[in-house]
């Protein structure tokens, strides 16, 4: 647990809307450095949309998103690039480049953004692939890998430049329990040892209990954050019945 609460992401009065339809209505929250921060909610509540706003892919209808003090929404050109260097993103489908091998996919950011020599880059790539359990698959094309493997490769690519913040969209969906637990261990070790901040959209309750420092829950009926805290506290002490239900149903299924 972190003793000092240094804010690394600050979302202020964010409203997200597609045309006239409001998806998220005026929410604010902060993410602290080194925290594993989970965005949770029922299907269609705008979790992935919120994630895409936070990485600056889409402009919000209103509000600001500050990454390490800089507004990613209004930043342009080299300022924007500087902010983007601080973040790494793993998309739901992996989004690996189909024309490159796994090794080339992970190596690409190093080639573009560092002055490391070639053998140093090779070593870093191999180490990252080892961390996600994909050593030995360097020369495979993404299409030759299973969905879970593609996801892990995408995590390796997202973290190859060691960004301060990693955004993961449904990282453990489609993974077997053992791989998923290994991934959880990786997240915990990166957060504790390197103080990398994680913002994760997920549904997997078992994994949330083991990795999350903090969870926010979005409810699509009110379009706001209805809970914010440690998952155990939300399950046991939340004054919102829907939140307790959300956690307890799953707990009843998994735990009893």
């Amino acid at each position: 647990m972190n003793t000092e609460q240094e804010t690394i992401i600050r979302v202020e009065n964010l409203t997200v809307a597609y045309d006239e339809t409001v998806i998220i209505d005026n929410i604010s929250f902060e993410v602290h450095r080194g925290e594993v921060f989970i965005i949770l909610g029922g299907s269609g509540c705008g979790k992935s949309t919120l994630l895409k706003q936070m990485i600056g892919l889409y402009a919000p209808a209103a509000g600001r998103i500050l990454i390490d003090g800089d507004d990613i929404v209004s930043a342009e050109g080299s300022d924007r690039l500087r902010i983007l260097r601080k973040i790494g993103v793993m998309y739901q489908s992996g989004a690996l480049f189909g024309s490159m091998t796994l090794f080339e996919n992970v190596r690409l950011p190093l080639e573009e953004f560092t002055n490391l020599n070639s053998s140093a880059m090779d070593l870093i790539v191999l180490m990252k692939l080892k961390q996600v359990g994909l050593k030995g698959f360097e020369n495979h094309m993404p299409s030759e890998l299973s969905g879970g493997m593609q996801k892990r490769a995408a995590i390796a690519r997202a973290m190859v430049l060691d960004p301060r913040i990693l955004f993961l969209d449904e990282p453990s969906a489609g993974l077997d329990p053992i791989t998923s637990a290994e991934l959880d261990q990786l997240i915990i070790s990166l957060a504790r040892n390197l103080r990398i901040t994680f913002v994760i959209v997920t549904h997997e309750l078992p994994s949330i209990y083991s990795i999350a420092d903090r969870v926010i829950m979005l409810d699509k009926r009110v379009k706001k954050i209805v809970a914010d805290g440690r998952p155990q506290d939300l399950r046991d002490k939340s004054d919102n019945q829907w939140v307790r239900q959300f956690f307890k149903r799953e707990v009843a299924l998994n735990g009893s």
């Binding site: 091998t101 090794f103 053998s119 090779d122 070593l123 790539v125 191999l126 180490m127 080892k130 961390q131 050593k135 360097e138 020369n139 070790s189 504790r192 040892n193 390197l194």
Partner: peptide
Amino acid sequence: DEYRKLLDSFDPLEFEEYHPE
């Protein structure tokens, strides 16, 4: 300590030089 843990998680001899297929 935290960096040591990370370093110890890798076996250096496992990483021979990479040769593309």
